[in-house]
Design a binder for these strands. Structure first.
Length: 876
RNA sequence: GCCCCGGUGGCGGAAUGGCAGACGCUGCGGACUUAAAAUCCGCUGACUGAAAAGUCGUGUGGGUUCGAUCCCCACCCGGGGCACCA
């Protein structure tokens, strides 16, 4: 498309010196012109340290630049952000609206594998497309702050943060059964596995024991939970996070084993039911299984453990209804009743939660009850319903009550008994209060090429001890190790001075197939001489450099998951080029945390949990000055296809923003997206709907511009506007401001349509009225607003034209229609002074022709008068 | 099973204790036109009625209130999440 050059369009003041010469509303000519104007004038470059205005930092979740281009859901999300930013700017805020690219990740790598084009190049192309598309929407993005998670300057700091986590003991290596997806050739985090399938692609996953990096997010479980109370987030998401973190308070109790020195520790939330513990269960993976198993039970136990191991987790949970287990042959001693109780092995107890062992109280736990019934284990009631109406509650009885059959604790309430029993156990050294979380540590490594390499090398124990200088300064208290072929490998950090650690060049991005990423094949990069003081590296093919500190090392071949980069991009926007600090504290203080963050709810327990974890940690180590990363979060709803179903290629109901902009223009699309319904709701696209909005914009154009492209004769400085219009005009200024403030964009637009209907009835209109209106419209439909603003003789840009004020006096009507209700039912209405006294209103109501029949022959019992609204006469 | 969110015309939605259905779409009627498109004007919850008007109506059933889409209780339905978490 051709962009008219500004110079050619110059006309003498006051008209047409920048705007187009369109006679009809032609978004395809108008929009590119103003987009260029904004770019040429750096209109949206945010100024650091502007203390003359309050700052406003608004962020939408940055996109993954896929090969499919922008989705209409992005359009919705970014329109809402842009609209808010333009509104805040009109109010006088120093606004920052940044954008970036979540550019590491699987689809790009898969494209690279399929096409042989390097992921870096695939990313570059996709980013170019996305950027062009975003600019065609007319978003006021400050591109000087563009971030890309794959830029070396960005990767360096992602690695730096990992280094801090490592140094502070929050990153460790564990060989553990993890979700492995054969199809994707990588392991996945718990959060990325849904119903036994990969979140991305829906491929089957299975458990495999692999060496993995894990981040100790559980150390922040309590902080992550507590922060939820103080932030302005959608309740559903907070609730989901609370659930996911799953804090549960109880006690750890240690049971002695009969005829054995070992003890068995369990976690329970119901220490009050301890007297009712008639058996114990340990998970099949429990380390004590071997010792607990007696000779007689050995073969049965081994068979059971083997069967459990081969079951996928999906099978294990699918069979939830049908309990299975095997007796170990050993007995434990109930520490309060002294009873000898059997120890069972059953897969309904999970090794990953609590201690991997439980005390089973069949009378008061549904699962234990099912198990006890099936295996004919005694069931002893120890809790009674508190306010028993004579009848005993049926078993299993799983709520609090009063203790029975509980020795000296009989008669206490559950609550009292919990404290008393734990206190007793604590004195004996076999119990204590304890808290458990469902949240697991975050599996942080992936076997892919297109991700951040870990700033870690592996060395021998002897070489580990040679660490000094900057390398030693970054070591955790306890070394991170793993055993490979009987040899223990030690992790040394690649220190900050050597970052970023870049990916090796290769043309084969496929995983190596042995559980290692493509990096496992990049020998020159992988096998190195490492300086254990400075962190420098040289290929191992070269001779060993001179010096005590040089040791033989192998680099870590895992890469970080895609979530890593998005954990801190909100910081990089504030200080996008810094190579000294993660974020300059002065800039950090100026911009603070985003005042607004919008994105889909699908990241509730992924990005929205991970990023706060990193941020809280960075705050703790003094790397950032803000305690809370996202004080205010909004979720936009999904834009569904016209058939009300989720948009997808297979359903053939995808709406492409490029097509919509081509047909209707960006202003119409932006406006329609905001008009469809509440931002947070899912709502179906409707082609007729956007036509309605386009009609609205054309009407506006015709009110201002006549068929020759001149200002319409109707717009005149000596226009006489009707009182009715005057009122609507000021109501509109008030309502639109209030609605923008509350994020209720659909009703703001409805009000603007009311204004449009009102102006259609006017003979003449003041230019000032049109200009007021353009300023209200500009945040949503910025191009047409700029165009008409300038054609009306104002200097561009309308972006800095401020926000119109309404006249409160214009809103007040002397007389209003008062609803007349009889016994609560609307019967009539009457015109009356707004603040008429009750007596007058009542007299009018009683005399009203339509209300009268309902009052005839009845006695008035009560009158409720709400001045200006209704009068309700209660009569019978 | 547990947790969260929701249920209003033909459709998207508005109204958070005061005349339900703003605004938009659709549909119907009209104006302009040789005609069509575009544009403009009017009507458009259901039922009864020629009309005036009346009755019903915000998932269902109760409750609070002069008055309930709105608050409370119970239930039904839909969507999302969690699910042997001791």
């Amino acid at each position: 498309m051709t962009i008219p050059r500004a110079r050619e369009r110059m006309r003498p003041f006051p008209y047409f010196h920048m705007a187009t010469t369109c006679t009809d509303y032609e978004p395809s000519r108008i929009e590119p012109l103003w987009q260029k104007f904004w770019a040429d004038n750096n209109t949206f470059v945010a100024k650091d340290f502007d203390t003359t205005r309050p700052k406003y930092f608004a962020m939408a979740m940055y996109p993954y630049p896929s090969g499919h281009g922008l989705h209409v859901g992005h359009s919705e999300n970014y329109t809402a952000t842009d609209l808010l930013c333009r509104y805040k700017r009109a109010l006088g805020f120093n606004v920052m609206q940044p954008m970036g690219w979540d550019a590491f990740g699987l689809p790009t790598e898969q494209t690279a594998v399929a096409t042989g084009v390097h992921p870096r190049e695939v990313t570059r192309r996709n980013v170019e497309t996305f950027k062009r598309q975003l600019n065609q929407h007319g978003f006021g993005i400050d591109w000087t702050r563009e971030v890309n998670t794959t830029d070396p300057g960005y990767v360096r700091w992602t690695q730096w943060i990992f280094l801090q986590l490592y140094k502070h003991g929050l990153a460790y290596v564990d060989e553990r059964p993890v979700w492995w997806c054969q199809e994707l050739g990588t392991v996945l985090a718990n959060e990325e596995v849904i119903d036994g399938k990969s979140e991305r692609g829906g491929y089957p996953v299975e458990k495999r024991a692999l060496r993995q990096w894990v981040l100790r997010i559980t150390a922040y479980a309590d902080k992550l939970l507590k922060r939820l109370d103080g932030i302005d987030w959608p309740e559903a998401t907070k609730s989901k996070q609370r659930n996911w973190i799953g804090k549960s308070e109880g006690a750890e109790i240690t049971f002695a084993l009969d005829g054995c020195d070992e003890t068995l520790t369990v976690f329970t939330t119901r220490p009050d039911t301890l007297y009712g513990a008639t058996y114990m269960v340990v998970a099949p993976e429990h380390p004590l299984v071997g010792k607990l198993t007696t000779a007689a039970q050995k073969s049965a136990v081994e068979a059971y453990v083997k069967a459990a191991a081969s079951k996928s987790d999906l099978d294990r949970t699918d069979l939830a209804k049908d309990k299975s287990g095997v007796f170990s042959g050993s007995y434990a001693i109930n520490p309060v009743s002294g009873a000898k109780i059997p120890v069972w092995i059953a897969d309904y107890v999970l090794m990953g939660y609590g201690t991997g062992a439980i005390m089973a109280v069949p009378a008061h736990d549904e699962r234990d009850y099912d198990f006890a019934v099936k295996f004919e284990i005694p069931i002893i009631r120890v809790i009674e319903k508190l306010d028993a109406e004579g009848k005993e509650a049926p078993l299993p009885f799983c709520v609090y009550g009063k203790l029975v059959n509980s020795g000296k604790h009989t008669g206490l309430s559950s609550k009292e008994a919990k404290a008393a029993i734990v206190a007793d156990l604590e004195k004996r050294g076999i119990g204590k209060l304890s808290v458990n979380y469902k949240l697991r540590d975050w599996l942080f490594s992936r076997q892919r090429y297109w991700g951040e390499p870990f700033p870690i090398v592996w060395v021998s124990e002897a070489d580990y001890k040679k660490a000094s200088g900057e390398v030693a300064a970054n070591l955790p208290k306890d070394p991170i190790t793993f055993v490979e072929n009987g040899v223990t490998q030690y992790a040394l950090p690649v220190p900050a001075s050597q970052l970023p650690l870049q990916l090796p060049e290769t043309d084969n991005f496929q995983p190596s197939g042995t559980g290692e990423s493509a990096l496992g094949r990049c020998t020159d990069w992988l096998e190195i001489w490492f300086n254990a003081a400075t962190g420098e590296a040289k290929s191992a093919k070269e001779p060993k450099p001179a010096g005590e500190s040089w040791v033989r090392a192998r680099r870590e071949t895992n890469t970080m998951p895609q979530w890593a980069g998005s954990c801190w991009y909100h910081l990089r926007y504030v200080d996008p080029k810094d190579d000294k600090y993660l974020i300059d504290p002065k800039l950090n203080n100026y911009w603070g945390s985003p005042d607004y963050y919008i994105g889909g709810p699908e990241h509730a327990v992924l990005h929205l949990l991970y990023a706060p974890f990193w941020h809280l940690f960075l705050y703790d180590i003094g790397a950032v000055t803000t305690a809370e990363p996202y004080p205010r979060l909004v979720h936009q709803g999904m834009v569904l296809g016209e058939n009300g179903e989720k948009m997808s290629k297979s359903r053939g109901n995808v709406i492409n923003p490029d097509d919509v902009i081509k047909e209707h223009g960006a202003d119409a699309m932006r406006m329609y997206l905001m008009f469809m319904g509440p931002l947070e709701d899912d709502k179906p696209w409707n082609t007729k709907g956007i036509e309605g909005v386009t009609r609205f914009l054309r009407r506006l154009w015709r009110e201002v511009i006549d068929a020759d492209g001149k200002i319409s004769a109707k717009v005149s400085a000596d226009a006489k506007e009707s009182a009715a219009f005057h009122k609507v005009h000021h109501e509109t200024i008030k309502k639109v401001g209030e609605d923008y403030e509350k994020g209720r964009y659909n009703t703001a637009i409805a009000q603007m349509m009311i204004w449009m209907n009102a102006i259609g009835k006017e003979e003449t209109v003041l230019p000032g009225s049109i200009k007021d209106f353009l300023r209200l419209l500009a945040p949503i439909a910025p191009h047409i607003s700029e165009e008409l603003w300038e054609r009306l003789g104002e200097a561009p840009s309308i972006v800095d034209a401020g926000w119109p004020k309404f006249d409160p006096a214009a809103l007040v009507e002397e007389s209003v229609m008062l609803g007349i209700l009889v016994n609560g039912k609307p019967r009539s209405e009457v015109k009356i002074a707004r603040d008429a006294p009750e007596a007058e209103a009542l007299a009018l109501a009683k005399a009203d022709e339509r209300a009268k029949p309902f009052l005839d022959g009845k006695t008035i019992r009560k009158v409720v008068y709400v001045p200006g609204r209704i009068i309700n006469i209660v009569a019978n």
